[in-house]
Design a protein around this nucleic acid. Structure first.
Lengths: 166, 166
DNA sequence: GAAGATTGAGAGTTCAATCTTC
DNA sequence: GAAGATTGAACTCTCAATCTTC
């Protein structure tokens, strides 16, 4: 096992005359790597449920919606994914019996995705599994995680990711 | 534009009796979303060079290697990606003339990937572009970024991502 | 004409299976 | 038999093009 590759890259960047960007490079690379590690744990946990994280997020979104259904387009906006990805995910979930499509009553253009009773059961069990295997102990001290969330919320806000309350 | 979806999810988690996992869920979701935002900026910056971030990382790895070449297997270990991904990336880079394959002189099983002069030029220019467009201003205050890197280094170390200096 | 959704193509990843060389 | 690399299959994501409905 080698030493920390990100620290090494930071050193290389500095020695290459890119000192001004070295910290930012290390930050971005850290995010990429931690994302990779977390996703691996998540995928492993969701494997028994035959769910990807993307499909899990879609299921939870419907679970937390009052009527248990949402237009496909709205799902894409909320989950920040491409319409084609929504179509694909809903196809899979529908073939698994966790979601059904139905036409919008008032607008013939839009399609609604509705979570089924089986979908609700799977969503709750998968969430329990993720909570136990990943979320309750994501890999850093609770105070540290909270600080990261705060810093990332500011970053996302500045990137125009969501509206500022006002 | 809606309010912060992660804050909303945190509220949903708490109301659903999953309070113990709500902070961890928010942490993980934040990492996923920030990763998505950063990668979008990176891909956009690398687009003119016809490079993905994965191929850029491979190129930089070779650029910083003494002899400018490395066995494919070692590349996979350093970049933490599957051997098949290395084969794929090297195929693309080779067709772009940025890398060449050559057989290992002492071991007929292993193949070396060697960065070409053109590869070095593209790597330096792409790095300059990324430094200017992303790394010098990744989206949060410098002190904040440094704290995140420290927290993530601890997380990666605990996950067995690299050896502890001893 | 614009909005909503789907389709097909292209790129990337992972896995299992295969082939060659040690 | 094990290590290194490649191949083909399965999946996901994105983009451009298409189709239907407003």
């Amino acid at each position: 096992l080698a030493l920390d590759p990100i620290a090494e890259a930071h050193r290389n960047w500095t020695e290459h005359g890119w000192g001004d960007a070295a910290d930012g490079m290390a930050f971005v690379t850290s995010v990429v790597r931690v994302h990779q590690l977390l996703l691996a744990r998540i995928d492993q946990t969701l494997d028994p449920f035959d769910l990807s994280f993307a499909r899990f997020e879609l299921l939870m979104l419907l679970l937390f919606t009052r009527k248990g259904e949402l237009p496909l387009g709205k799902i894409g906006v909320r989950l920040q994914v491409h319409p084609a990805s929504v179509t694909n995910a809903v196809n899979r979930l529908e073939s698994q019996g966790l979601v059904v499509r139905r036409p919008h009553p008032d607008d013939g253009r839009t399609t609604l995705a509705r979570i089924t009773p089986a979908g609700r059961r799977v969503a709750r069990r998968a969430a329990d599994a993720l909570n136990a295997a990943v979320f309750t102990e994501p890999g850093l001290p609770s105070a540290s995680a909270t600080r990261v969330v705060a810093a990332f919320t500011a970053l996302r806000r500045d990137a125009g990711d969501f509206a500022v309350r006002g």
